[in-house]
Design a protein around this nucleic acid. Sequence first.
DNA 1: ATTCGTGCGTGTGTTAGCGCACATAAATAA
DNA 2: TTATTTATGTGCGCTAACACACGCACGAAT
Lengths: 245, 245
Amino acid sequence: MIAPDNPNLALKNYLIAALHTDEFARLEPLLEPVSFKLGQVLFESGDKQEYAYFPTTLIVSLLYVMERGATAEIGVVGNDGIIGVALFLGGETTTSRAIIQSAGAAFRIKATDLQAEFARGRVFQKMLLRYAQALLTQISQTAVCNRLHTVEQQLCRWLLLSHDRLDSDKLVMTHDLISNMLGVRREGVTLAAKKLAEKKLIKNVRGSITLLDRQGLEAAVCECYGVVNTEYNRLLSRGISRTFR
Amino acid sequence: MIAPDNPNLALKNYLIAALHTDEFARLEPLLEPVSFKLGQVLFESGDKQEYAYFPTTLIVSLLYVMERGATAEIGVVGNDGIIGVALFLGGETTTSRAIIQSAGAAFRIKATDLQAEFARGRVFQKMLLRYAQALLTQISQTAVCNRLHTVEQQLCRWLLLSHDRLDSDKLVMTHDLISNMLGVRREGVTLAAKKLAEKKLIKNVRGSITLLDRQGLEAAVCECYGVVNTEYNRLLSRGISRTFR
DNA sequence: ATTCGTGCGTGTGTTAGCGCACATAAATAA
DNA sequence: TTATTTATGTGCGCTAACACACGCACGAAT
């Protein structure tokens, strides 16, 4: 059994795992294990980001919060990526909130340490930049999906994106929380979830959704999911989907 | 009068203008003046991008095209930016089409030349990375706006974003083309444009829309426009809006 | 065992935007 | 001038999603 603070756990994060040996050796002592609960906020819109996070088991939602309080998710990050692209893109802050969508663990690194290693170039820089493009693609597709697809399709997409970043088939998540992510009404999520449950694709129980038929979901989802998935695989040269890899 | 192929015209592009003297001296001979008409395609989704483009007077729309042919704009680029972020982010291609939204001129640079100068670091790299974040913010806000706002609000946003990148108050653009950008019906644009015209904010004539009251439009637009604008100013340290700078 | 908070199901009425179908009008070509 | 294309205005029925309002059920706490 690996100790819970063993830095080799960091290899569960694909960006870390892709590093060259010398890069990993240099970064390893700078990585600090952290864990978060559902709903915790890593940083708010406009916050100076002191740390970047490499998720291993947790999932983070990048959420935009309107002046009136309405919210909409613009992207989701798990062990496929990093929270804090603004740190190496140069902006230091973003207009979105980073909030824990699924409890779990990550490794954090000081902003200055991240920037120093990024400046060395090499694989680390390359992977971070490619990840930035992957995220850009995901956000673009979110924009398109918001415009053109139904709540049911978007729920499928959201469930699959989350599932890809989890070890479990059970997503601990209320309809209300999902509605905040999708930027729709809670009733809309309930209705869409009910339809998916009737098709035996998921099981709805109080406080969680369990995926029963991944293939069925992939058949029901809009093309947006596949486009993002394919692009992640292309850009990051590995699979995040159990079926697409 | 500056000759039309005078590379100093390139300084009309804010990214070029921000370079240090030695960087500009190195880039200048690599920049080639080009001009495009409305509707021309710089590259399709998935195309290997041979050139990056620094617009001076033209505007480019980044458009996603669905399998069924429906389209939605994910972002707009003018003399504030560069077409081809995938070249320095490392992906080489993107999932969107780059199409001329307003005819005009630009300077292009070979992909390999761009990458070589990017690799040198310094101001060029810094500006490109910051621009990537600005674009990311714009796309994020497009996603949010698509989810939460009305066609009329989005049309305001779109008109202002276009106007910011033009010298003229007249946008040569049919309702049909705008509808492709916004991902809505042509009739929806006609209706929204009519409402704005009734409020004396714009003038609708066949084939073009003229902005009559910019302040009025800024009062009518959703917060999305201001958020993007403020972030562009912050990240790129200069104004693109006539009112916000 | 009862109470209470939270999560979910459901109904009613409203509205924004869609698809379709034309009518009109302005530009362009013949 | 006349004909033809292209852009815009408008009407009608339809649907997805909205806002609001409950009722119910599960589960934890007393």
